[in-house]
Design a protein around this nucleic acid. Structure first.
Lengths: 337, 337
DNA sequence: CTGTTAGCGCTTTCAG
DNA sequence: CTGAAAGCGCTAACAG
């Protein structure tokens, strides 16, 4: 900038004004500056220097709890990100994806991220990255959970929603089952019964299991009999194969509540293949009320992830008045009776 | 940092060393510093100040030519992003998504992005954002196109690949058609014949149309007879509905080359619904050789978008030796004869 | 092992 | 409308 000022025969302040307060500069000076800049290949004020001076980077950090590949594979996460992006674009903020690799460096990266605030996508309760975020002293909003002192939370009440949907899905069932997201960071495919929801590290998954358990108990069924099948990723085909297993035993399950529409559609495919009648012999419900849910006439829990992303971003960037609880609803179609 | 130094009774350099060259500091001083930092709630060196001092932000900028929602909806784009993220995570770089809104501000945002280099995902030839990138003087790698002086390019040879696949898909056909991505930024759904590929603004789409035309001509068919159906987005259902139209006329088309596997699967669904035999009455080919392609026994052009993302990121970040052309191949399954 | 000095490129403040 | 001075928080380079 000093060079440009020299060449244009003005002071640095005139150059600075030219880029920031065009109205404070005479057209004459302005032209001289722009000329000199063009000759020197100067493209405008250095963003890093500005950030230092302003004390703000005008950038929002986004931390994905899962490996980036999983995150992008997950339509819910993608909708959430799109909501964040919308707010960033709107306010002229950049959106910095902090790449986490599940190693100790992650915390370092969080500390070194040049951002004004963070939005965090679902992670485990004990993730050290959360400590790094707290330590950084920057505002942060977590989606899903875990709740954490000083960090704000944007989420539907997963437990209540799971309870509501569980009451519909499991109504009249004798052998209900749950198709779950992974129960721990090992992400192993498991089929088990009598799972203690409290041992699950992912807050969203835990809350949903708790809600389903509430429903099971309210319906007079025995939680310890309920089979929980957890997939490694949110994958339709994996869900299909698990569902086949659940349906091909002597006393097959007669209701499956899934944690995503992708999983639920996999269940429907398995049922179709095996000639199991829906919802007579098997009730099925999904989660998120995606296009796939509507297309398959699937009952599903509706929530607007995109709006939640936008809301989380606004909150992180300093909107105070947004503590309104997030809405959800149970959408009943023809896969539950 | 000065405050921490004061409180710890050392100089600022000792504080700086504590965070950057722990080995250059005695354990004693180190502890004093960390104590003081903890008391003051100091979380380590300010990233913005560092960027200024280092002359580098350790952040890679990513510019998506399409609206973010489309970009995230597109599995190819997502794979590409995952490849970039991988390299960033590996090198400790941040990944800044520059939100573009299709307005004049976009160029401003590019200029103000605090990044060392850019990776750009397919955009139109005349996008002003490209000028902003050039003007910023930072290294940039474009995926797909357009080629641009000074900017590097990572892409398969779309024209050659389309030619190769066209020769297989259209072989023996009498009424071939092409299911295309949008032909211009208006993104309108259109069905037309005799489309001039050169008028198409998106380089990737243009090159593929050129390649298909090469094949049509090589097979002795008439390009002006060939129907080009362009979808508004890369959507399976939209492709299905377009395919239904192409198949429900008096002389239905007998070969459809699509530009994505999602589109091609939509075509297969339409054919199944209408009882059209594949590949006897209708040959179909897709693009990208996704999991869906394998699952549907779909012939498809294979390319590794994730690897291309990684390669683009490395190139942007300064790898010199990577000018190797990107590989692709034609995978023939049972939807072509 | 620790400290001093200088300056990265910019903009706020205040004075013409 | 334009400019001079000061300093944002940090670290390279060089002493001690």
């Amino acid at each position: 900038m000093a060079q440009v000022a020299d060449r244009a025969g003005v002071s640095v302040m005139t150059v600075s004004y030219t880029y920031n307060r065009a109205d404070r500069v005479s057209i004459e000076s302005r032209n001289k500056v722009l000329h000199a800049a063009a000759e020197l290949g100067y493209a405008g004020p250095d963003p890093a220097a500005r950030s230092l001076r302003y004390g703000s980077t005008r950038t929002l950090g986004v931390i994905l709890g899962e490996h980036l590949t999983y995150a992008f594979d997950n339509p819910q996460a993608v909708a959430f990100l799109a909501g964040i992006a919308e707010v960033c674009a709107d306010r002229g903020y950049g959106m910095l994806i902090v790449p986490t690799a599940g190693t100790a460096d992650d915390s370092v990266r969080v500390g070194q991220a040049a951002v004004d605030a963070f939005v965090i996508w679902t992670m485990t309760d004990d993730d050290p990255v959360l400590d790094a975020v707290s330590a950084s002293g920057r505002p942060a909003v977590i989606h899903g959970g875990p709740a954490r002192g000083g960090l704000q939370l944007v989420s539907i009440d997963n437990r209540a929603a799971a309870f509501a949907m569980g009451m519909k899905t499991f109504a009249g069932a004798r052998r209900p089952a749950i198709l779950s997201f992974p129960l721990d960071s090992a992400r192993q495919t498991v089929i088990a019964s009598g799972v203690d929801p409290e041992t699950v590290q992912f807050p969203v998954t835990r809350d949903r299991l708790l809600g389903y358990r509430d429903a099971i108990i309210a319906l007079g069924l025995e939680w310890s009999d309920v089979v929980v099948a957890a997939t490694a990723t949110n994958d339709e085909r994996e869900a299909e194969s698990l569902a086949e297993q659940l349906l091909s035993v002597d006393h097959p399950v007669d209701a499956i509540a899934a944690m995503s529409d992708e999983q639920a559609v996999g269940v429907l495919t398995a049922a179709a293949t095996m000639g199991v009648s829906i919802p007579r012999a098997l009730a099925v419900s999904g989660w998120d009320d995606s296009r796939a849910a509507a297309a398959n006439r699937l009952s599903s829990v509706a929530q607007d992830l995109r709006a939640q992303g936008a809301s989380a971003a606004r909150l992180a960037l300093g909107a105070q008045d947004e503590a309104a609880p997030v809405e959800w609803s149970v959408v009943l179609r023809s896969t539950t009776s």
